[in-house]
């Protein structure tokens, strides 16, 4: 069975927290190259690894991983701005 592509926000969250790939890799117990594969969405993590990532970022799994592509920051900001104008 071919697994679906998983989209994630690992790169964004890691940079937001000022973490290097090596630091994140050490925290979740993988090789730093695996972080690169995850960030490029070339590798789908196991449920265990996904939980470990969510624990490091202190966010629910569905805020980090999705089967649909995440909206970009500019799209989210634009939506928020439009919503405020409507209110």
């Amino acid at each position: 069975m071919e697994s679906r592509k998983l989209y994630n926000r690992i790169n964004l969250l890691r940079k937001e927290r000022g973490m290097s790939r090596q630091e994140l890799a050490d925290k979740i117990g993988v090789n730093f190259q695996t972080i690169g594969y995850l960030e490029r969405e070339e590798y789908n993590p196991s449920l265990d690894l996904a939980f470990r990532i969510s624990e490091v970022f202190e966010l629910p799994i569905d805020m980090i991983f999705s089967t649909a592509a995440f909206k970009s920051i500019s799209e989210i900001l634009k939506e928020n701005s439009n919503n405020k104008h409507h209110e």
Binding site: G29, V30, N31, T34, Y37, Y43, P45, S46, L49
Partner: peptide, 11 residues
């Protein structure tokens, strides 16, 4: 030739 215990899930 690394031991399996030293590899992560992707490796």
């Amino acid at each position: 030739h690394r031991s399996l215990k030293q590899l992560d899930e992707r490796e």
